[in-house]
């Protein structure tokens, strides 16, 4: 697994302060419009997303690169695989 701290994202989605629809919906939206191989970073203050995003990546077959805690938010990094 690549270190999320040093992974440069091609798309960065700022979903801080988002409860509804929330960071994972923002990620799915970004994945749908991204090209295969692109790396997407989601900035999130929603604690549930730390748990949900890796689970979804596993189900949907995208690569979960990792989570980096930066101050009061998470930077969650995912690569579109297919």
């Amino acid at each position: 697994m690549t270190d999320p701290k040093v992974t440069v994202a091609t798309v960065e989605v700022d979903a801080r302060g988002a409860y509804c629809p929330g960071p994972m919906m923002e990620l799915i939206r970004a994945i749908r419009s991204a090209k295969v191989g692109e790396v997407i970073a989601v900035l999130s203050t929603d604690s549930g997303s730390r748990r949900d995003i890796p689970r979804w990546c596993e189900k949907a077959g995208h690569e979960f690169i990792g989570v980096d805690r930066i101050g009061d938010y998470d930077r969650i990094v995912v690569k579109k695989v297919h």
């Binding site: 409860y19 509804c20 629809p21 929330g22 949900d52």
Partner: peptide, 12 residues
């Protein structure tokens, strides 16, 4: 539902 729970808002 698209997420791992039944609504995007956890309390909902």
């Amino acid at each position: 539902y698209p997420l791992g729970r039944l609504h995007s808002l956890e309390p909902v």
